[in-house]
Structures are given as structure tokens and as C-alpha cells.
Design a protein around this nucleic acid. Structure first.
Length: 423
DNA sequence: TCTGGGGTCCTAGGACCC
DNA sequence: TCTGGGGTCCTAGGACCC
């Protein structure tokens, strides 16, 4: 058996934990750059506020209903997430952190337990230790656990817990679940399925296996098998090394000069390098992309270019140099740029034996050592005195900084913010 | 005026090998 | 000039997830 523990309205709930005045009030959280709505409390959902709505389109309505609006505060959500995960780790022998607000728990060794009672215990514990409300779904496969947790969350009569442990319970759960709400069935597949009169999860479970294999491919076949109780997706206990790391942002205003784009791209390259060092990994390719607003059709430009590095690196300066060369090739004057990003890929572990060696071996060794020490010192200072205490001179955010007008304090990760709260 | 960011996996098709 | 069978690797694009 698998349990899926899913935090309710996670970002909105995080904002509430440290601000009790927000209880029972509609709360929403905006995407980066205060662009669109990405999280809503139950009260906000009840007002009919839709996920993904652009902020500017519903601003008036939000004010009218006195909805509390936050910019997204990822340091806070990341820290709250690890508190939830730590709590869950003590409640099951094995846990897979599936996303920032969800985890699968291995329940196979709980056969002699009352699983429904245990799910309630999980729910109560997370609430008590972190302040975050969660829903728990338990079932024989991951896909069914997803179905269960969704019902636990949507249907008040379940009180946050749904156990699917008998054939009948599974069947009726599948019958009340629309096929597009099944994990792994997206927009395209739903369209295809509806055209075949496959409307519910139960219909998909019963559909011709050959048809599913032909039209939804191997992924769809696995979903179908999982709905029928055959477990195809195992617990993934160790997170595999990332294959690519991306840092990108929309700009707070239009950016027209190359200098400002250089500053943005330098900042993203530095951030990618930092993420690589945190992953204990090296990258061997760099991609830079820049673009105008996706909503400005008449003056559109979207450029992307990739370069292979001579040898894999996690050095901020090396990635910055490569990124600037790519930007040189991409930049075209006369456009109002709205977004840029850096992606590093071809990632190998730091201690990898298959690292490409330079022809000039000795030179590379000493250079790598110097780079490495410099980055260690930089990360050390920033770890102690706060992000951005030291940075490369090319990193700058004046011109392009995303909007973040409604940011809450970093209650759990910054001393300065806590003091501010007390005052 | 204003519309997010960060990922993974799979497939098809091309180029190439013996 | 015609002809077979089996394989790998890479890339672009699509679909999906949170």
C-alpha cells in the first residue's frame, strides 16, 4: 500500500501559519513577478477565483472581496516543505518526496494496522508540528493513492482521509473521478479519451488495453494498469542527479539594452552555478534564451542558443563567460525584452570518473583548484551573511528585477525578518 | 501597464554502424 | 544495379507534472 500525503493549498497555508489573522480569510499567492494566481485558500476558491488567472485581470474583484494577496516567498515555502517532510519521515519507514508539497509513504509494512486511523494520525501530526493542513490518500498503487488523496481533499465528508483498500471502494472512487483528473492524463489525452466516450477513471480502467497502448503509449498503459490495482510505479527513495538546471525570470519592466540583459543573464548564470555546487555536480553545456512578451505578437523575438564547454564546471565565472558569449550571438537591438534564462545541462556528478580531461592536464588541475577555492569562499560568506553578500560584479538586478510587491517576511530563514515581525 | 518557473519522460526520425 | 536485418546515438518536439 502507498500513502500520498498532499498539503492543502500549500503556499497559502504557509502564509497563514505565521499570520493567524489570515485564518478564515480568502488568501492567494501570486507567481513570480506578481503575474498570475498560483495558490488559493479554500475561501478564495469559494469566491470562484481560478488557478492561473492573471493578477491584473481580477485585481478589482480581489479588492472588493478583501482577498489577501501575497507575492511568492520561496525561501518560506521551501523551509516549510522540509519541516513537513521531516515530520513524515518519522511516520513511515520510507518516504518519497514527490514535490514541494507532496510525499508518498510506503505503507506495505503496516498490514496489521488500522490504516484509516493511521492516516488520521499522520494528518494530526503534520498539523501539530508544522501548522500545515494535509490530505491523506491510501491505496494499492501510486495512481490510486493520488485518486484517494484527491477525494480526501475535495469531499468534506472524508475529513481529509481516504482509504481505498477493497475492490468496491476502488470501483466507486474511480466512478466518481473524471478521467482528466487522473494523474498523468493531461489536456491532450483527455480530448482523445472523451472522443472515445471514456469519461471517468473507471471507464479508462475498463477500456481496451490495445487501444490505450496504441493511443496513449506506454505511459497510458501504465496508468491503466495502476487504476486496475497493478502497481507499476515504485517508490523512488533517492532523488536522481538532475539532468538540467534552469534559472529564468520575467522582468519587472521591458528591457531594451544589452547591458541590462547582460546583468540579468550574469545573475542567472551565477545562480545556476550555485545550484550546481549545491547538487555537487558539474555541467558541460550552457543554454541562454531571451524573449519578448509572449503576448506581444507583432514584435516578437525568441532566441535560444547552446554551447558545449571544454570541460564540465560548476564555476560561476566560467558559466558567466559562456553565457555572455551566447548572449552576444542572440541579442538583437530594437526589441522590448521581457524574459531571459540560463539552463545548464550535460550534468555529471562532482566525483565522476568520466570527466573530460583537458589536453593541458597540469594547467587545468591547478585552475580547477583555484576556481573551486574561490567558489567555496564565496558560498561560505553568503551562507553566513546572507545571499548576495558577495557576488560577481556583473550580477546586477536594478533594471530587470521582477515585481514582488506583496512579499511576506521569511519567518523561518532570516533573523532580520523575525525581528521585524516582533517590532 | 500588468499574463510563472522548473522539471521529466517518451516518441519519431535521421544518421550512422556492422 | 539490386538486395536484409539488427542495432546505437542524438535531437526536436510533444505531453505531462507540480
Amino acid at each position: 500500500m502507498f500513502a500520498l500525503v498532499d498539503c492543502n493549498n500549500f503556499y497559502a497555508s504557509c502564509e497563514r501559519v505565521f499570520n493567524p489573522a489570515l485564518r478564515n480569510r480568502p488568501v492567494i499567492v501570486l507567481s513570480n513577478n506578481d503575474g498570475c494566481i498560483i495558490a488559493r485558500s479554500e475561501e478564495a476558491k469559494a469566491l470562484g477565483i481560478q488557478m492561473g488567472t492573471p493578477f491584473f485581470k481580477c485585481r478589482e474583484m480581489l479588492e472588493r472581496y478583501k482577498v489577501v494577496v501575497f507575492s511568492s516567498n520561496y525561501p518560506l515555502y521551501g523551509d516549510m516543505s522540509s519541516r513537513v517532510m521531516t515530520t513524515l519521515s518519522a511516520l513511515a519507514p520510507e518516504i518519497e518526496m514527490y514535490s514541494i508539497d507532496e510525499a508518498f509513504l510506503d505503507m506495505s509494512s503496516f498490514k496489521r494496522y488500522d490504516l484509516a486511523a493511521y492516516a488520521k494520525h499522520i494528518r494530526k501530526s503534520v498539523r501539530q508540528y508544522t501548522g500545515i493542513p494535509v490530505s491523506v490518500g491510501i491505496a494499492p498503487t501510486k495512481t490510486l493513492a493520488k485518486v484517494a488523496s484527491r477525494l480526501a481533499k475535495k469531499r468534506p465528508e472524508y475529513q481529509g482521509v481516504c482509504l481505498l483498500d477493497t475492490h468496491d471502494a476502488i470501483r466507486s472512487a474511480l466512478q466518481i473521478t473524471k478521467v482528466e483528473d487522473v494523474w498523468g492524463i493531461g489536456r491532450q489525452s483527455s480530448r482523445l479519451l472523451h472522443a472515445e466516450r471514456i469519461e471517468t477513471a473507471a471507464d479508462l480502467a475498463d477500456a481496451s488495453a490495445a487501444w490505450v497502448r496504441k493511443h496513449l503509449h506506454i505511459v497510458g498503459s501504465r496508468i491503466q494498469a495502476e487504476l486496475n490495482g497493478e502497481s507499476c510505479l515504485a517508490m523512488e527513495l533517492v532523488r536522481p542527479v538532475k539532468q538540467s538546471i534552469c534559472t529564468s525570470r520575467s522582468f519587472g519592466r521591458n528591457v531594451t539594452t544589452k547591458e541590462e540583459l547582460e546583468q540579468a543573464v550574469a545573475t542567472f548564470a551565477g545562480k545556476c552555478a550555485f545550484k550546481l555546487r549545491k547538487e555537487k555536480a558539474l555541467a558541460s553545456m550552457v543554454t541562454v534564451f531571451i524573449g519578448t512578451s509572449a503576448f506581444d505578437e507583432k514584435d516578437e523575438y525568441w532566441g535560444t542558443q547552446t554551447v558545449s564547454l571544454c570541460y564540465p564546471t560548476q564555476d560561476s565565472i566560467a558559466l558567466l563567460r559562456a553565457s555572455h558569449l551566447l548572449l552576444d550571438a542572440l541579442f538583437k537591438g530594437g526589441y522590448a525584452y521581457k524574459k531571459a534564462g540560463v539552463i545548464v545541462s550535460g550534468i555529471v556528478p562532482e566525483q565522476s570518473a568520466c570527466m573530460t580531461l583537458s589536453l593541458f592536464h597540469d594547467e587545468q588541475e591547478s585552475r580547477n583548484e583555484r576556481e573551486k577555492k574561490l567558489m567555496e569562499v564565496m558560498d561560505g560568506i553568503n551562507g553566513r551573511y546572507g545571499r548576495g553578500a558577495v557576488r560577481l560584479a556583473a550580477e546586477h538586478s536594478e533594471g530587470w528585477k521582477p515585481n514582488q510587491e506583496r512579499l511576506s517576511p521569511c519567518y523561518t530563514t532570516r533573523w532580520g525578518d523575525i525581528i521585524e515581525v516582533n517590532v
